[in-house]
Design a protein around this nucleic acid. Structure first.
Lengths: 146, 146
DNA sequence: CATATAAAAGACTAAAAGGTCTTTTATTAT
DNA sequence: ATAATAAAAGACCTTTTAGTCTTTTATATG
């Protein structure tokens, strides 16, 4: 469904946001290890996301990656389109060029509804809400485990 | 969503079935042209499908590709799994290794329902029914056009 | 200001996907 | 038989995706 770059980007950004909630700015080594992704490849992907303005970074001692809390939440849709384009949301499952609501291919209606559901999901969900869900999950479970 | 090989395979097999309904066995050149796919690449893909027993072929004059009408209908699911594996139907959208119903990642439930819908669609639909839909569509439109 | 630290930049390699082409083999019609 | 035909086989090439590594640049802190 998603390519590696997108997977690592989602996992990386959610991890960064999670650490940010705790007042920390994780570095590449920590991020890559925690999300189980290749160190240097993760660095390259995060650098691209910085250049595109999705996250901020700080060089030098105590540096790392962080979200600008002034900026609006980052939807998965924005992130996915940035890393692998929008083909997932506008292509025809059957691969036909001439396929739209007026001239549908045999699979059109059923496939379109699935594609729309996927579009809805990634438009609604964002990095911040995912990180918060994980934060809550851990907070709720912690007392029982201790 | 699907890779090129899968797209060409679906389009090619539907075209073959459509021609078979008319008592014809199309050859590679015709198929590739009609489905707008690269000639030699289409040949390679169809050859693999023959080896896997999805379709039959006949060499020599008057030869071409055809379905064994004795065999059961070929679902898109079978075809997709043969051409690009089953990762689309069992992977986690979030890319986490530990993600199942017991230990779900934040997106699990919503993503799972989309994946299941997709699975259902390609399991229900098959090459034969798609070809028949196109056959009916053309038959209905023909009288008006002439 | 020096130094340690950490991201930025970019060259490089590896593997997979996508695609091309030539040669061989099988079949059928003359 | 043999010539024409059409798929099978497989070598090769190109592009994209995935991943690695070294060098450079910026920055906080002693």
């Amino acid at each position: 469904m998603f390519n590696k770059e997108t997977e690592y980007a989602i996992r990386g950004l959610v991890y960064i946001q999670l650490q940010n909630f705790n007042g920390k700015r994780p570095g590449i080594a920590e991020i890559a290890e925690q999300i189980d992704a290749p160190h240097f490849y993760t660095a390259k992907i995060l650098q691209r996301l910085v250049r595109q303005g999705f996250i901020e970074s700080q060089k030098g001692k105590g540096g790392g990656f962080y979200f600008d809390s002034q900026k609006p939440d980052l939807s998965l849709k924005q992130l996915i389109v940035a890393t692998q384009g929008d083909s997932l949301f506008c292509g025809c499952g059957f691969g036909l060029k001439q396929c739209d609501d007026n001239n549908p291919c045999p699979l059109h209606d059923k496939y379109a509804s699935i594609r729309n559901a996927l579009n809805q999901l990634v438009t609604d969900e964002n990095v911040q809400s995912l990180a918060q869900t994980r934060l809550r999950g851990e907070e709720i479970q912690s007392p029982r485990l201790k």
